[in-house]
Design a protein around this nucleic acid. Structure first.
Lengths: 192, 192
DNA sequence: GTCTATACGGTGATAGAC
DNA sequence: GTCTATCACCGTATAGAC
């Protein structure tokens, strides 16, 4: 059974927003990509493009949050390894998508930070949820909570920036180089 | 004497692109902000919006390159201090501009990475020039050249990501936290 | 040579057919 | 209740007035 129309619209939006940005993507293009008739958009999202954007950001955000947990669970006892895996997986995904699949939030976040409070706030919440997820794992590895929170922010910043550079350059090197150095930082902070 | 019309158009473009993105900024808005009549745009930029974008990216890029050099020169003997200053200055500029003045390249880079080769290439060149500038200073402080290049990439990634987070959150904390940790990384790499 | 007025396509949004 | 046909508007680009 194929996903319902509403979900297809949400996922088509998320994909197009991350490739082309929010302003650069038309609603017509979204309905076409989602295989949904034009009229259904305003049926499911009466708030128009902005509501669709807010929900698409939240949707992508929670999908990636689950992916974080998956990667962390896979190497439960080695948090540094998990962070490294995450950079590695992102590099592969980016390359395999012909450099289209970067961060699903960052492009929209930069576009709307000064132009739409509802959208900006949706991005704030996603970033916060990601940071919290990373911080919890670092704390679980024995790093004091306050320090774990700062390190999580640092990891996410380095990760986001590396995606910007790798996607622009069409080269996984920024992600690989940054992963190595960030892993070194985290390794030095672990107790024992 | 006021700058010439062409330059005003270029700088208005650069400012609007960084606040709202490339797709989200109209040519009408650019001419209005630059105090230039509508017709002058296609006189100075016959290649239309894309040419204007390419030149605006290059213009911002070289302005920031000069700023890099200025900050590095100010504390010539302490490259870690310079990097820290750069994060600090960016945090101040971001806050003082009411969270509008982030990176003049990153927003456009993410928007166009999959949609315009000329624009993407302009962004590639700017990032490369910035990395090279940082790498040269790190090498000058005694770090082997290959390692200096990797560290420069790392610094730029962390910096770009921190701007994304700080601008989205409207909080200088990501920039401050990341600056501290990156400074620590660099400090540990210096000889002596 | 510089720019005002206009063309044409695509945008987000809606009213009314089924 | 679901969606097709249409709207008014703004986007980029251009032709021709000065």
């Amino acid at each position: 059974m194929t996903r319902d129309t509403r979900t297809r619209l949400l996922e088509a939006s998320a994909q197009l927003f991350r490739e082309q940005g929010y302003a650069g993507t038309g609603l017509k293009q979204i309905t076409a990509a989602g295989g949904a008739p034009w009229g259904s958009l305003y049926h499911f999202f009466p708030g128009g493009k902005e509501q669709l954007g807010v929900e698409a950001v939240a949707h992508s955000g929670s999908r990636y949050l689950r992916l974080f947990d998956l990667v962390f669970d896979r190497a439960e006892d080695d948090v540094v390894r998990s962070v490294r895996d995450f950079f590695q997986l992102s590099a592969e995904a980016l390359h395999k998508s012909d450099w289209a699949d970067g961060c699903p939030i960052a492009t929209v976040a930069l576009e709307v930070a000064s132009t739409s409070e509802p959208l900006r706030h949706a991005c704030v919440e996603v970033f916060a949820s990601w940071r919290e997820s990373i911080a919890r794992r670092l704390a679980g590895a024995g790093i004091p909570e306050a320090r774990a929170a700062d390190l999580a922010t640092y990891v996410l910043c380095a990760f986001e920036g590396a995606i910007v550079l790798s996607r622009t350059d069409r080269d996984t090197r920024p992600l690989r180089v940054t992963a190595d150095i960030v892993a070194g930082t985290l390794g030095a902070e672990l107790p024992g």
